[in-house]
Amino acid sequence: MLRTVRLGLRRRGVVTTSYPDVEHVPYEGFLGMTEVDTSHCDLLGKCAEACPTGAISLSGGSVRVDIGLCIFCAECVRACPRTAIRMTRVYELANKDRKALEVEFFVR
């Protein structure tokens, strides 16, 4: 009993973290939110072709990514010859509004 209290007070043997009070940062290479690097993108459309769920579409001068359809497979990253699309470490993607899941990246 005393040992338990002491352990608790000294916070030894604690394995949980204080998320969300303390931010959790995933590892490099984590398959999170898709992001288009607008300075490198040439609107080739390879990502849209590679996407198995049709989450990526090109319209005029922008790339539109629908996170609601994305399965985070990173096929788009593999397909892009300009390495202009990548998966970021952002994972808190829930939203009350379906429309907010559609993100648009303006290339020019």
């Binding site: 995933p26 590892y27 290479g29 984590f30 398959l31 985070f72 497979c73 990173a74 096929e75 998966m87």
Partner: peptide
């Protein structure tokens, strides 16, 4: 798994 592959379930 996440550290090695980016996915906890070794997807992709």
């Amino acid at each position: 798994n996440e550290f090695v592959s980016g996915s906890r379930l070794l997807r992709s």
